[in-house]
C-alpha cells in the first residue's frame, strides 16, 4: 500500500494536505497540542521560541487576506520569520511555473510552505516535488486548494466543537450550504467521520451537493426544518457570491428564505446547539444577523482557536525529521 503522503515513515505528520485519511490519533494529537497554545495569547509576551530561526513562506496563489493573516500570526507567535508572497500578482504573471517558483523559494532556505491555490492538488504536487528532489525537510501546509481541502479550517472547527461539546461520539452535526464548491465542507466532513460523529447531516439544495455526497457518510436533507431537528452543532458554509451568477441559484433572497439560518430555524436544533461559520459571512444570505450575533454563535472563538490550531500544526511539523 502506498504511504500516506502526509506522514513520514514513523507515522508522524510531515505535511498537512487534507483531513481525508488523517488517522484519528494524529487529529487528536493536533487538537491536544493546540490547547496550551491558546494560553499564550493572554500573556505579556505572546511568543514561543519553537520555530526560532525557521522561515515560513506564505505562498498565496489565490487572494485571502484573512487566512494568510492567521497563518502569519501563528508563525510569528512561534518566532518564525514569515515571508508573504501574493503570487497571483507576481511572478506567475511573468510566466513562471508553480514548481519553478517553489524551487526558487526552496533555494532561499525555506523551512515551511503555506500554500493557497485555486487548483485542487497544488499543495500535494509541491510536496511530491520536494520529496522527489530530496528536499523533504521542507514542510507543506495546505491553506486551501480549489474545491479539494482546507484542513486547518476543518481542524479548528473540530477544536471548537470539542471545546464546547467534548465527546464527538455522541453528536448530531449538520453541515449547511454550498457543499459542492466548499473545500471547507470536505475537510470538516472527513474530520468529523474520523472522529466518530454518529449522525452527520448535509443540508443543501440539490444543485449545491456533490454527486458523491452519500459516499462521504452524510445523510442528505434538502429541507432545513427536517435537517436541523435535534442537532448539537450547526456548521454554516459561506455562499460564494460568484456562484450566484450561474444557474445554480435563483437569488440571494430566495436562498436566504430556504437555506439561510434564522432564529426560527435554529430553534429546531437542541437548545444548547452551537453555530459555526468559517467566515467571511454573508449576512442575510446564508446566516441572519440575529443568529450571527446571538448567544449560540461561536464564530469569533473559532477565529481565536484557529491561531492555536495553526500554531500546533506548525510546531508539530517543525520538530519532525524527514
Amino acid at each position: 500500500m502506498a504511504r500516506n503522503p502526509q506522514l513520514n515513515r514513523h507515522g508522524e505528520l510531515q505535511h498537512l494536505l487534507t483531513t481525508e485519511g488523517l488517522p484519528r490519533d494524529v487529529i487528536t494529537r493536533i487538537l491536544d497540542t493546540a490547547e496550551p497554545f491558546t494560553v499564550v495569547a493572554e500573556r505579556e509576551v505572546k511568543k514561543l521560541p519553537l520555530l526560532r530561526g525557521k522561515s515560513v513562506f506564505n505562498l498565496f496563489f489565490e487572494n485571502s487576506t484573512r487566512t494568510r493573516t492567521t497563518f502569519e500570526i501563528a508563525a510569528k507567535r512561534l518566532s518564525a520569520d514569515v515571508i508573504n508572497l501574493n503570487i497571483s500578482t507576481s511572478s506567475t504573471n511573468k510566466g513562471e511555473t508553480l514548481l519553478d517558483t517553489v524551487d526558487n523559494l526552496a533555494a532561499m532556505q525555506a523551512d515551511m510552505f503555506v500554500v493557497r491555490h485555486a487548483s485542487s492538488g497544488a499543495p500535494y504536487l509541491i510536496a511530491q516535488h520536494l520529496e522527489a528532489t530530496g528536499r523533504d525537510h521542507i514542510h507543506v501546509i495546505n491553506a486551501g486548494d480549489g474545491r479539494h481541502a482546507h484542513p486547518t479550517q476543518g481542524l479548528l472547527d473540530m477544536y471548537t466543537i470539542r471545546h464546547y461539546k467534548r465527546d464527538f461520539t455522541q453528536l448530531s452535526v449538520a453541515v449547511v450550504g454550498d457543499i459542492l464548491h466548499s473545500r471547507v465542507a470536505r475537510s470538516q466532513i472527513h474530520a468529523l467521520t474520523t472522529l466518530g460523529v454518529p449522525d452527520l447531516r448535509a443540508i443543501a439544495p440539490k444543485t449545491l451537493l456533490p454527486a458523491d455526497i452519500d459516499r462521504l457518510g452524510c445523510r442528505v436533507f434538502h429541507d432545513m426544518a427536517e435537517g436541523l431537528r435535534g442537532v448539537d452543532v450547526v456548521m454554516m458554509l459561506r455562499l460564494q457570491n460568484e456562484r450566484m451568477q450561474g444557474s445554480l441559484l435563483p437569488s440571494p433572497q430566495e436562498y436566504f428564505k430556504f437555506f439561510g439560518l434564522t432564529q426560527e430555524k435554529l430553534a429546531l436544533a437542541k437548545p444548547d446547539a452551537i453555530v459555526l461559520h468559517p467566515g467571511p459571512m454573508n449576512r442575510g444570505v446564508e446566516i441572519d444577523s440575529a443568529v450571527a450575533d446571538g448567544r449560540q454563535a461561536v464564530i469569533l472563538p473559532q477565529v481565536t482557536f484557529g491561531i492555536a490550531v495553526r500554531m500546533a500544526v506548525m510546531a508539530m511539523l517543525g520538530s519532525v525529521e524527514a
Binding site: 508522524e12 494529537r29 491536544d32 497540542t33 490547547e35 496550551p36 491558546t38 494560553v39 519553537l50 510546531a315 508539530m316 520538530s319 519532525v320
Partner: peptide
Amino acid sequence: GLARDTRSS
C-alpha cells in the same frame, strides 16, 4: 519533538 501531553502553563 513536542511532548505528547504538554499542559497549559
